[in-house]
């Protein structure tokens, strides 16, 4: 075989020729796509936007004057009344306390989660997870059919990223 005598010194990115065709066909497909979204905005929307953003910021930062619902002179009576209630409850209601508390907590927690208030950071959660369950899981006994797995991987796994990040 004839040897290349002269080298250009040029280099190409890894996988350039492997990806070239995919990129080319993708470009050809794109030719048929409409160039614009078709969306429009109300007249003068962008002119008015600056002020409305600022109004929102200043409105949320403005300190509101707090008016007390109860004049302070009644505070002593209210505190005494509340103390009586607490003592009364703790004397007459000890038997069922544990049960009611559990039920209440579960219901409240359910509602809290349903309303979308639970906003954990993914990283916070992962610190609480150990991998025992994953290790002990026997995948062959699970009911994942090959087709389902294949579909899942096709839709969710970006093989290019995996290869690139190796």
């Amino acid at each position: 075989m004839k040897k290349n005598r002269n080298k250009t010194g040029f280099k190409i990115p890894d996988n350039y020729f492997a990806d070239f065709e995919a990129q080319l066909y993708s470009k050809i497909d794109e030719i048929n796509f409409p160039p614009r979204t078709g969306f429009k905005v109300p007249e003068n929307y962008f002119e008015r936007l600056d002020d409305s953003v600022f109004n929102k910021i200043t409105a949320s930062e403005k300190q509101h004057k707090v008016i007390s619902l109860f004049p302070t002179k009644y505070l002593g009576y209210a505190a005494a009344f509340a103390a009586c209630l607490v003592i009364g409850f703790s004397i007459f209601n000890t038997a069922n306390e544990q049960e009611t508390l559990d039920a209440l907590q579960l219901a409240t927690i359910d509602k809290y989660i349903d309303e979308g208030n639970l906003n954990f950071d993914l990283y916070d959660i992962t610190t609480f997870i150990d991998d025992d369950n994953i290790i002990n899981t026997n995948l062959e006994e699970q009911q994942f059919s090959e087709a389902v797995l294949k579909n899942y991987l096709l839709e969710n796994v970006d093989e290019k990223t995996l290869i690139d990040e190796q």
Binding site: A22, Q23, S26, E30, K160, T161, I163, D164, E165
Partner: peptide, 22 residues
């Protein structure tokens, strides 16, 4: 915060799906 290669392949998959749909 994704690699260029990963983005390119996601983009091409998207173009393919759109073309197929149309």
């Amino acid at each position: 915060d994704t690699s260029v290669g990963g983005l390119k392949s996601s983009y091409h998959i998207a173009v393919k799906k759109i073309t197929q749909f149309i």
